[in-house]
């Protein structure tokens, strides 16, 4: 495997981590969705490059799913849902941008510290891919905990899932990758439908998860 092959894979996976950081500081829902579409696009490129460099044609299917479903269909659908819901464009964050970014850097450092020493030296591609993938997963979790709004939590979950797909495609020759990415797409479709269900329930007047904090089922 030539150096250039490795460098490009490295660059694309690193790009995914960078876009994850961009997700962290968006304070408007539409911008968040656009960045998520970019995230999915990076994933598509990364997976397609893995398919090419591993000579694994079935991974092109995963790349196609990422492109059509995650980069186009889901962002467009969420755009329309936000429009119909007329929910506030501003996202309420629990923590400020500064501490969030610092926490994000800490998480990336953590995943490098965890993954690099334990993976075999002989396979640098899989090794660094895995470290990047764990970073994306942890950053996705960070997005989920720092946002109070249901749509942005969904976006956080979807970026987390992109990290998982990156890890699965980086693991050379892993079976069931396509099936797992299809299963995840179904899961995400369910979540989006769930957000939509929130809307059609007329008694529901907010998609703000903060409202859930009031609810413990313990009211008299």
């Amino acid at each position: 495997m030539g150096d250039i092959v490795f460098d490009i894979a490295h660059m694309l996976a690193g790009g995914l981590v960078l876009v994850s950081f961009m997700l962290l500081y968006q304070d408007r829902l539409y911008a968040l969705l656009n960045i998520y579409a970019l995230h999915a696009l990076m994933l598509t490129l990364s997976v397609a490059w893995q398919a090419f460099s591993q000579a694994a044609p079935h991974l092109y299917v995963t790349a196609a799913i990422a492109l059509v479903f995650k980069a186009i269909v889901i962002p467009v659908a969420l755009h329309r849902i936000i429009q119909r819901l007329g929910i506030h464009r501003e996202i309420e964050t629990v923590v400020g941008v500064g501490p969030t970014m610092l926490a994000g850097m800490g998480l990336v450092a953590l995943s490098l510290v965890v993954i690099l020493p334990v993976t075999p030296e002989g396979d640098p591609l899989a090794r660094e891919d895995l470290a990047f993938a764990l970073s994306v997963v942890l950053l996705g979790l960070l997005v989920m905990v720092t946002r109070r709004n249901a749509v942005s939590q969904v976006v956080g979950f979807m970026s987390l899932e992109n990290g998982l797909v990156l890890a699965a495609t980086g693991a050379k020759g892993m079976p069931l990758v396509v099936e797992i990415s299809v299963a995840f797409s179904i899961l995400i479709a369910f979540i989006v439908i769930g957000v939509f269900l929130f809307r059609i329930r007329e008694r529901f007047d907010t998609v703000d998860i903060g409202a859930l904090d009031d609810f413990r089922g313990e009211r008299r």
Binding site: L134, V137, F157, L160, A167, I191, R201, R203, L212
Partner: peptide, 26 residues
């Protein structure tokens, strides 16, 4: 109201759990 909120909470936390389990599987 309560049932949908419970389902949503279950869904989000369950999905995170599922995602971590998949990473472990990989």
């Amino acid at each position: 109201h309560e049932a949908l909120e419970a389902a949503w909470k279950y869904f989000i936390l369950g999905s995170v759990g599922i995602a971590l389990a998949l990473f472990g599987t990989i």
